[in-house]
Simulated assay, not measured.
Amino acid sequence: MPFPATHPAEELKPDDVCAFLFAGTGSAGAPDLPALARTGPAAARAAADVVDAAQEGLPRDGWPSLRSILLEDPGAYRAAARTPGVAQLAGYTASVAVDRMLRTAGVQPGYAVGQSFGEIAALVSAGAFAIADGARMAVGLVGVLSRRGRGGGLGMLETGEDATRACIEAAAAPQVAVACLNAPTVTVVSGPDGPLEQVLDAARGRGVRAVRLAVPYLSHHPAMAGADDEWYAMIRRFPQRPLELPVHSPVRGRAYHDGDDLHRALADCIVKPVRLPQTLRAVHQAGATVFAEAGAGDALCQCARLTLPGARTLAPLRDRPARPRA
């Protein structure tokens, strides 16, 4: 059910500096872009422009109309998302659309942070890549991960990295690796289906909440070596442009600069782990006063609050009116 239109800029102080957070695969639910589009004609135009630009990057056959499932008939999204890759492309499109819509509402990013493959949207937000090229990158990524990472997946444990490694050891599942540290007490693991389930069961046996994420392939896993080079070869043809704002990478552990090969940096995400807390702390120390979720839900805002107690957050597409939370 759509929820009321919100006006995010009204919730900010004049001297606030926003860090836009771009979630990766598995972090968000169905995006409801009409909720922000209802804030005014400028926001509606921004959303439509992004959706149409992303559609240009999709193959003509086998993909739904993004305008239909994200703007005109969002009720059709869940059925469309059963097609492999649609949820990932919709998530990318929604993230960039929320970025643009927030800007039209007067909420400007001072920093961008991409979690996992949210780095594609973060770099598009910063002007490093065109929207259509970002969609083309995402299409290629889904194909590579689905083929190379078949038979594996991701799971989330609501505990820290050390306790997670203890669960891996208790399950005798060395094939499972720590993929993402999302918050001091939220860890994502990656591994083959059987060993992954063993680790999740071991965690539950220790009283740790553990769930399988809706990601049907390995990612951020050393066994994916070679997949990174394959995707890099696919995406390196897309022009890289100067960055228009700082983009902090939880994989590289620093802000990117124009001398970086950003195509290679994105490809590294297939194999290397994500460490989000240190990036959120760095962005906060650099001057960010509010963390805004550029996309559906508020998963990364929750990570910010867990990492930085008292952090103010803004999640315009969560299931209630947006208000910075302390």
Score class of each variant (00 low, 15 high):
6 T>E: 06
244 E>S: 14
76 A>W: 04
108 Q>G: 10
28 A>G: 08
49 D>Q: 15
187 T>D: 06
234 M>C: 14
274 V>R: 00
65 S>N: 11
1 M>C: 11
190 S>R: 01
67 R>N: 02
185 T>S: 15
54 A>M: 07
78 R>G: 07
116 S>K: 10
105 A>V: 05
98 V>D: 03
279 T>M: 06
241 R>Q: 12
238 F>C: 05
257 H>Y: 02
308 L>A: 14
181 L>Q: 07
194 G>S: 09
292 A>Q: 00
131 I>H: 00
78 R>V: 10
270 I>M: 12
117 F>S: 00
72 E>F: 03
58 L>H: 01
175 Q>F: 02
85 G>L: 11
268 D>K: 11
193 D>V: 03
92 Y>C: 10
294 A>H: 07
27 S>T: 09
243 L>K: 09
293 E>A: 10
8 P>Y: 08
209 R>D: 04
15 D>C: 02
209 R>W: 10
251 V>C: 13
74 P>Y: 11
78 R>L: 13
132 A>K: 10
217 Y>M: 03
64 P>A: 08
280 L>Q: 05
156 M>K: 10
214 A>Y: 02
121 A>N: 01
223 A>G: 07
305 R>Y: 13
147 R>S: 15
203 A>M: 08
215 V>A: 02
200 L>N: 02
164 T>Y: 02
57 G>I: 04
189 V>H: 04
127 G>D: 05
250 P>Q: 12
203 A>Q: 07
215 V>K: 03
164 T>H: 02
274 V>E: 02
34 P>G: 09
159 T>S: 00
19 A>W: 13
98 V>E: 02
192 P>G: 13
41 P>D: 08
169 E>F: 01
119 E>K: 02
14 P>D: 14
197 E>L: 03
188 V>T: 13
90 A>L: 04
106 G>F: 06
182 N>M: 10
128 A>Y: 00
238 F>Y: 09
218 L>Y: 04
309 P>Q: 10
22 F>E: 03
256 Y>I: 04
18 C>L: 15
258 D>E: 08
67 R>A: 02
112 A>D: 13
73 D>Y: 07
64 P>L: 09
228 D>W: 09
211 V>W: 07
226 G>D: 06
20 F>V: 09
308 L>N: 12
51 V>D: 05
215 V>Y: 04
174 P>I: 06
168 I>E: 08
67 R>F: 03
313 T>H: 12
233 A>F: 04
227 A>D: 09
152 G>V: 11
288 A>E: 04
249 S>N: 12
269 C>E: 02
26 G>V: 07
30 A>C: 03
34 P>M: 11
244 E>D: 15
12 L>M: 14
129 F>Y: 14
266 L>E: 06
110 G>E: 05
52 D>T: 13
